[in-house]
Design a binder for these strands. Structure first.
Lengths: 189, 189
DNA sequence: CGTTTCATGTAACGTTCGTTACATGCAAAA
DNA sequence: TTTTGCATGTAACGAACGTTACATGAAACG
């Protein structure tokens, strides 16, 4: 029954959000989600297919949450710069662990593409680029888009290791201020 | 004999540079370095101790290479901004794979600290901060230091996933230009 | 020369891995 | 009521894991 499987997927995502992807094995995973390795294989066919379904569901969750951000009335978000909006969305409690897991997946895929790259959804490598261009169509040069994405990535990773939301958010504000000033002086000239 | 061990460490580092840390196991590691699992345990005592020694040697290599950069006569480097200097050092062939491995270790330590955090040298979490302040003592606010480190981290990770040295380097130049202009306008006021 | 010490090979240990065989309960269908 | 099919438990498979026991060659030392 698809119903049972969907329940399982929810539990499995919750487990992954807490325990990460590296060194994952079926029996602890099953024990941590109140089922058995036998049942996981029964429902998903193999560990590989399980990860395919669960990680796709996880990424769909992220896409859905991001779509909600885009659908908010623009009056609620036009006051803040797009990068700031994206940052606030990313560090919100309901998104933070998901993004943390997504980042772990992407980084594992860099060193072990044979094992992990298959789990990356079609557009996850550049979802950040897509997000930025969706929020800020004025960002036209690839270098600037790459820079903004890198600032976001770098600060999010720093947040993950240090847990210091205050300092990382200040650093982002710092960047936004620099970018705003640069843009202003460019339009003056 | 320490001699034999040092030879082994060199081979083991080479293996890790190519194959990464995740899903590492003794027998493939031994086969890939021309020895046997038996010998690795004999020389290092355990897999954990082996990783401790090998990863410490790897990080020592990075520190040594970075020290060389600092020791260059300042005439050879004063013309370029510190962040650019650091970037060129990091993407140089003799350093790139080492930093890639170091980044993988740091990110594994985020999600699985029990397994991987022990391999992080005393100061590796903030070696980048140290590097930046060593190269650019004018960077005084923690927010700006965090931002510069994040730009470096983010662009390096983007380089690792895309392999696009040109675009990532352009993005860094973009950031440096913004920072230079901001600094100039601040000193004017 | 004999002894000791280091380095290595072979084989196995016990555990965990992903996976499967087989039996069974249980609910819906006939 | 009987049958069918999904969901689950128990137990095990073969492979790989980190590690160890034991034997042995080679080399240094007395």
């Amino acid at each position: 029954m698809q119903n049972r499987k969907d329940e399982l997927i929810e539990s499995l995502i919750a487990y992954l959000l807490e325990n990460g992807l590296a060194d994952l094995s079926l029996r602890p995973l099953a024990a941590g989600t109140g089922t058995s390795a036998r049942l996981l294989i029964y429902h998903f066919g193999s560990k590989e297919d399980l990860l395919t379904e669960v990680l796709e569901a996880m990424q769909a969750h992220v896409r859905r949450s991001f779509a909600q951000l885009l659908e908010k009335p623009s009056t609620a978000r036009s006051s803040k710069p797009p990068l700031k909006l994206l940052w606030n969305w990313a560090i919100a409690d309901e998104n933070y662990l998901y993004l943390k897991l997504l980042y772990e997946l992407q980084i594992l895929a860099i060193q072990n593409p044979d094992t992990y790259a298959q789990y990356l959804g079609r557009n996850t490598d550049n979802w950040l680029d897509l997000a930025l261009t969706a929020l800020s169509p004025s960002l036209r040069t690839p270098a600037m888009a790459t820079l903004c994405a890198a600032v976001f990535d770098g600060l999010f990773i720093e947040l993950m290791s240090s847990g210091d939301r205050k300092r990382t958010t200040q650093a982002l504000d710092c960047f936004i201020q620099m970018a705003t000033e640069t843009l202003a002086s460019l339009s003056k000239a």
